[in-house]
Design a protein around this nucleic acid. Structure first.
Lengths: 356, 356
DNA sequence: GGCGGCATCCTAAACGATTTAGAGCAGGCG
DNA sequence: CGCCTGCTCTAAATCGTTTAGGATGCCGCC
């Protein structure tokens, strides 16, 4: 490590003097812990004068409640565990931001676990989170997760809501978008522009989103009376690299497509790069539809036509579902699927004439 | 909400039967809680046969430890609170990912708080996190944070390490990169290519990074014997929009620069878009140096010349500092500044001839 | 004057783990 | 036979809160 390291005086603690507890406060005030506890939480049964004394003492002594101790007694932690498989992917970052924002607004704190798309790591991570007894879990399951992998979660009695992806038959609440309709929307747009050979870039059958989006692709073709040709699918996960290689692979076909929909925006960004490296211009030589509409999509050159899956919206909804289930664990399972919206920008246009 | 909502049977809990505790395990096994506790943590004082019985029972009954209760006794939570001001910005996402990864590898769990670049919200958030008694805080302070704002943290007796940004005089550990050297590196690169009028896009004096990077810009100019001209600075936070507007603003100058360094990569991405909208090509008509080298940078078109600040590396280091301070709260303060590295790609070239 | 009713505060028992001091017990040894 | 040593295990205190169920004192009222 070529680091510039500089040592100096130890951390100056103003008063590392044994953290002040509610009991100490009580003793100093000549009150019982019960009274102090009630006063701190604005109970109406404690006299105004007393409450003020307590609050003042708490402030001046720098009292900060020990939520762990309180939780032990109340069996409520105000923690929500969030299990994601990936936080680098911008769509999940946007999701995390939305979740954190609404949860913290509701007084919950976020305990984060990342599974890196690895089921074993996911069970380990969720197991660890569970030891903190979150009031709820919000999970986007790693690819390949089965109902069995989630059984422990179900047995824990903790509220669970799935977001974005779902494990079929898990019986948990869900918030996400209607991927079948979403991709079909993209295909329909291309069809309307005159495209007849339309590929799909990115295919990820290990996740529910992968299956649904593929189904949406097929549905879109079928609705237009177009045949499904497996050769037009460039497989791979939702990464830029998949898109770059995928579009080149499609262009190399004996009968290349004139357009493609993508599994997600990252695929599309990669495909845009691939087109550029092949000397082609997206929108003119080849049409491309992304998926998700992450905030970058509008800013690419050319701006990406894509399908807005309303991630921030369903993030808020997922947080709401968690809160509702915490409040009433016996309420019926709720599955919310938002209808995506097509966002037409500049990467789609009628197919190049003369090549039709 | 145009949501497709579907209700059905309530969540099926395999056994919502009152969560099994260590005491219950002990009772069922005819052992004391002490023995069970020791067995679960692989203490050598408990006989092998007993340990096996305990572990087997724990497994079959689905026992999951209550870390809150344990923490109450041990005064250690294995939680690390992470306070960031922003998680959408890809550089902070990459930082968060690195932090989470090394902390979870060390058996710590991440409690997340986001301040949205708002000091008041930051104190509220950190206060809430503190109630969970994390073993340490890792914080990238919101812009405008003063030593005073962090005093409560210092007084809490919780280990604190700052990452990326630091509040001068706070006396906390720090891990980040040497921004003065980093930006100077970018300037030197442009000078070497022959540029004489070099602007800076993005300037953010409310954060230590903003001040250091500006200082680096000035240092770079001074080293080359070039004058500092305030008109060549396009102010604004590290967002794409700042970059887009900033580059146009610079180009509109009576004596426009032929190149610019940026506060961060987002600024550079925006500037690339701005150039494109002005019909200019980065690298040919105008040279641009980003800052951070987020993973996107290599993938833009053209690929961005930028300064790699080694975010994932100092993320790991920050996590390590936190662990070390947890282990020894009295160790001397350590400040680590990694030396950034220039990454030359395609957005920099000699200034256009004839316009020099 | 006794008593009910308030308002206010307190006692004490949880919550679920960890940990220390020491209890049983078996075997070995003088 | 008595004592010491090791190996296991247990009893009980403890961490910092919350909360049910009193206790206390004061007032007014019949």
């Amino acid at each position: 490590m070529d680091a510039g390291t500089e040592g100096s005086e130890p951390q100056g603690g103003v008063s590392s003097v044994g953290r002040v507890t509610l009991q100490q406060l009580a003793q100093e005030l000549g009150l019982s812990t019960a009274t102090v506890s009630l006063a701190l939480r604005d109970s109406p049964v404690v006299a105004d004068a007393t409450r003020h004394k307590v609050l003042e003492a708490a402030r001046s002594r720098g009292y900060v409640a020990n939520r762990g101790a309180a939780s032990l007694r109340t069996a409520r932690t105000n923690i929500v565990g969030i299990g994601l498989h990936d936080i680098i992917n911008p769509s999940f970052t946007e999701l995390l931001a939305a979740l954190e924002d609404s949860l913290s607004a509701a007084g919950k704190t976020v305990l984060l676990g990342v599974s890196q798309e690895d089921v074993a790591r996911q069970t380990r991570t969720l197991g660890t989170l569970a030891e903190y007894r979150p009031d709820a879990f919000i999970v986007s399951p790693a690819a390949g997760t089965t109902v069995n992998d989630l059984r422990a979660l179900a047995a824990s009695g903790i509220a669970v809501v799935q977001v974005t992806r779902q494990v079929e038959g898990s019986g948990f609440d869900f918030a996400g978008s209607d991927d079948v309709a979403g991709v079909a929307l993209g295909v329909a747009h291309l069809v309307e522009l005159g495209h007849r050979r339309i590929g799909m870039i990115g295919s990820f059958p290990a996740a529910s989103t992968g299956r649904s989006r593929l189904a949406g692709y097929k549905a879109g073709l079928a609705a237009a009376g177009l045949p499904f040709d497996p050769a037009l699918i460039a497989e791979g996960p939702g990464l830029r690299e998949t898109g770059r290689a995928g579009v080149l692979q499609l262009l190399d076909l004996p009968q290349p497509p004139t357009a493609a929909v993508c599994f997600n925006d990252l695929n599309a960004f990669g495909a845009l790069m691939g087109l550029q490296s092949a000397g082609l211009t997206a929108g003119r030589d080849f049409s491309l539809v992304g998926y998700d509409d992450v905030s970058e999509a509008a800013l690419w050159h050319p701006p990406l036509t894509t399908v807005f899956t309303r991630i921030p919206e369903y993030g808020v909804i997922a947080a709401g579902l968690a809160l509702k289930r915490i409040a009433d664990p016996t309420r019926p399972v709720e599955r919310v699927m938002l209808t995506p919206r097509l966002v037409v920008r500049d990467t789609t246009a009628p197919p190049p004439t003369g090549r039709r």
